[in-house]
């Protein structure tokens, strides 16, 4: 019987078990090969598709590699000034509380220039979702040191490795915002293995679902790679991330709603 099964007989619409969601615009992503941004974009759009909230969602793009996120996500979007996405999202949600609102920000945007906006949106308990892609480097501008760059980690502005004595310590924003009474759900995920991708998607789903509850801000950090900035192959960068990033930025839920 199995001999009769041809390639052509399998590749049929009714047998399709996974395809790129239509909520991603049909164009090539501008990200480097192997970059986690693409995966995170796709997961988020899959979540909106499954929740059937495309027409009720407004996204806020950052400044950084994801500045062009609106080119790829087939939803209404605004592009915010550097670091200001949580303030922009605050107004969108306050003025249209029935909508789903998210920000999508990198580490420079969220944890350096936008620290105040991030902390205060979290502390006010804005009923939005913040998605935080942490790859420990400024990718867009060519690999400079980020607030989340690890001690000893090389970047174009810490060419001999980050010296904490002079350059300061990496900032664990996610642990920080988990302390604030306004955050409802805080988690750290990754998208570097199929298993982690599936977990990250569940977290994103929960973070968007939470907006229906009106109980505060959901914050999803995704520790990701920057193989261009780290000067590694995508496969090497994921291994390096496991060995170096995860010990400092451990994966898992940091603050979960008490039922």
């Amino acid at each position: 019987m199995s001999e009769n099964i041809t390639k052509e007989s399998i590749i049929k619409e009714e047998n399709c078990v996974y395809k790129r969601t239509n909520l991603l615009v049909d164009k090539a992503l501008s990200y480097c090969p192997g970059c986690g941004h693409g995966t995170a974009h796709r997961l988020l759009m899959e979540v909106l598709e499954e929740m059937n909230i495309q027409s009720e969602t407004i996204g806020i793009a950052p400044v950084g590699c994801a500045v062009l996120a609106y080119e790829f996500l087939d939803i209404d979007m605004q592009q915010a000034a550097h670091g200001r996405a949580p303030a922009v999202a605050t107004a969108v949600k306050r003025l249209m509380p029935e909508k789903f609102v998210f920000t999508y920000q990198g580490d420079g945007d969220l944890a350096a220039i936008g620290t105040a906006e991030t902390i205060h949106a979290c502390n006010r308990g804005e009923n939005i979702t913040i998605i935080f892609i942490n790859n420990g480097i400024y990718g867009m501008t060519g690999g400079q040191m980020a607030p989340t760059t690890l001690p000893g980690m090389k970047s174009s502005t810490s060419p001999y490795g980050r010296e904490v004595e002079t350059m300061g310590n990496p900032l664990k924003m996610t642990e920080l915002v988990a302390q604030l009474p306004g955050t409802y759900y805080v988690t750290r995920q990754s998208v570097h293995t199929p298993g982690n991708v599936r977990k990250a998607k569940k977290a994103l789903r929960k973070a968007m679902e939470n907006q229906k509850l009106n109980k505060g801000l959901s914050f999803v950090e995704i520790v990701s790679n920057c193989n261009s900035g780290w000067k590694m192959t995508p496969v090497q960068s994921n291994k390096w991330m496991e060995e170096n990033m995860f010990p400092f930025y451990p994966l898992g839920d940091i603050k979960v709603p008490v039922e």
Binding site: I10, N15, C16, V17, Y18, R20, C35, T39, T193, V197
Partner: peptide, 12 residues
């Protein structure tokens, strides 16, 4: 699921 560019469609 892992492909960052979503270029793979799967049938089963």
């Amino acid at each position: 699921v892992l492909c960052p560019d979503g270029v793979i469609t799967v049938y089963r």
